[in-house]
Design a protein around this nucleic acid. Structure first.
Lengths: 218, 218, 218, 218
DNA sequence: TATGAATGAGCATTCATTCAT
DNA sequence: TATGAATGAATGCTCATTCAT
């Protein structure tokens, strides 16, 4: 009954396929690789969840996700023993994406602008993912271990960018990373609830960016 | 906190008969003053609701509020015929407070700074009131008539301040009022979820303020 | 606390005023006569209850009656310790009226037609009194002592009429009184739910009357 | 009693696949047959509901039905998404039975008696089914769409019988169908609340029948 | 005594989770 | 293993009745 749950919280990583490589995950004992159809279901569920959570946030009844995935609830629960675990799985993936983006910019040729460009991309990621938005906005309140850890990690990596920018003199030293991220999230929210298109989002983020630059006074 | 009470059903008037304040309320006929204990309960309920909604937002079960108020559910429902009505009562009061603050700054002697000072006060109001935060963040999505109207009104009044500032040359003309408010709300959120004290909130708001000023480039 | 409840279930007899004469009621110990205003309230309540029960039946919330009576619920409950008791009071009065009608016809000069005329009048009484209808229709199910007794009494008195008619040869001997009454009630119901006026009621009752006459075959 | 089940959500088909009976249902696409236990529960629920509604009418709390069925409330709600829908399911079935009976008599060899015989059968159907009684008695008041339609249909079909009888000269032309039905329902009620056996019911209905025949005077 | 505020059991319904097929 | 049926705690709300003013 419990032997196959392994994959439960794994990110549906871009290149699908090898669910078996998951053994790499720290401290997980060797387990039978998932059956092909199980893998397929796993992904169908994640896909449906991504879409639905993105639109409706946590509050959506879990049946809807199963239905959308074309899968029985029982199946869903076999893969994710808890609504929360599914939710986590989704958000973890999303944050992972963001982490990668951060890493990419960490090697940018223009360290003075890397943070800014990252923030703009971060914004577009968050903008239309209700779940991601909610999670980040909750982060630090009810410590959902895994997410909390990830968010911490996110902050750490973005902090690298921030440091680079500070060193390059493009960002004031007294602004923390979480502050910046939260401000950008405010922008995301503003944008997603206005009638404008994405342009407005960038405009907002640019305000934040302007705000964190030195010598601000006109 | 309990001073205003834009009573949904009854005005919880302290010393009754006060004709001046009566006239202020549009077209309300003289009603018997509430019984002493009723007033007490009304206030206990509002107080409990203020606290609990502030912490947990709309989703909190209404029994908890009754319990916290030390009152039966029936009593709660006598005073507020609907969960929504109670929620509204709370938030309406909160927004009313903010409206007054906006008005006060509209007459400020330094129109160039009025908006900024308002935003700072606005931030402290929103900072730890989950309900207010939620309402403002929902505004425009599910139109809960009364609140929607109020938020519109808020935007209108803050827009006065913005115009003054733009005229005074302290704020860029391409930033909308809702954008500013949403950015500040992002700040509030950031602050309320960090472990710092209120200082951090001000710092954040100041970033936003910096961002909306002209000649931003360092 | 309990001394004044005497009048509780009394019929609001036609000529108002002397509530004190109630002492006549069997087995009730001497009690202080009701205060004038109490009597007034008692009647206001009965009046309101008559109207509302007639329209809405038992299911109506008791607050509505108090409101209609222009009386607090507390007052209502002082006079009638139970919703049921109030209901009973009303219906008892109504049945009393019917009893009187029955008595009147018992002395009719045309014993062969007395029953028929009574049934017609009975029908008009029941027709638009939801409560009376309900009570009679319930009679015999949940034995609400007092009403049950009264209904029995009603049957007894109508049976006198039936006997007269049987003796006069205008009614078949094999039809019981309750049967007739119930059939008439069916008529009442039919009539009250059609769009016709009272004419239809009489037509229906006439069908019943036709049905209980001898030599029916065409 | 359980043979028909005009399934509100699913057809509780016994042997699945039966195309002929399928086609009978208008425009219903092939659906997976219900699981064995689901069917069992569906029937347990209907059975319990039939019994309880028959005794207590609509007002009975739905938990009681679940309990009687030996089923959780959740289960009940899975099968019938609303109290009303369950109620409807029951009554619809009942009326359907009556409709069939009416149809059967429409082809009777003795058109002069068909109506009478139908009324007698109708009476026995209604006699001890509180729910059916209530529904018919409510018909036309609060229009519960589906039931209202059905009752209309019932009236229509019975009207066929009435017409036949009128043509055959066994029934007066001035009696409407609803009048007859209501009178019979009065009979049902009378009978079901007396201590007699079913004989009394027939006797009552016969009175009505007598009443609607021509040349009534003795 | 009259008032109406307070009370809480009761009801219909939803939804995360478990379990039989 | 996949399915979806079963479960029941939880929630918003009503209304008969009691109790403080």
């Amino acid at each position: 009954m419990s032997e196959a749950h392994v994959g439960s919280d794994h990110a549906a990583s871009g290149t699908s396929g090898n669910m078996e490589t998951m053994d790499a995950t720290v401290g997980v004992e060797m387990t039978k690789p998932m059956r092909a159809d199980a893998v397929r279901n796993h992904e169908k569920i994640l896909l449906a969840a991504e879409e639905i959570f993105a639109l409706d946030g946590v509050t959506v009844p879990i049946d809807l996700i199963a239905e959308r995935a074309g899968v029985g609830i029982g199946t869903l629960y076999r893969h994710f023993p808890t609504k929360e675990s599914l939710y986590e799985a989704i958000v973890v993936t999303r944050i992972s994406n963001v982490l990668e983006i951060a890493d990419r910019y960490a090697n940018d040729e223009d360290p003075g602008q890397a943070l800014f460009n990252f923030l703009r991309e971060f914004a577009t990621q968050v903008a239309d993912k209700q779940d991601l938005f909610e999670s980040l906005i909750q982060a630090g309140i009810d410590i959902k271990s895994k997410l909390a850890d990830q968010v911490e990690e996110l902050v750490r990596r973005v902090d690298v960018l921030r440091q680079l920018a500070v060193d390059a003199g493009t960002v004031r030293a007294d602004v923390t990373t979480t502050d910046m991220l939260n401000l950008v999230m405010g922008s995301c929210h503003a944008a997603s609830h206005s009638d404008d298109d994405d342009v407005s989002l960038l405009r907002l983020v640019n305000i934040v960016i302007a705000g964190i630059q030195p010598h601000t006074v006109g």
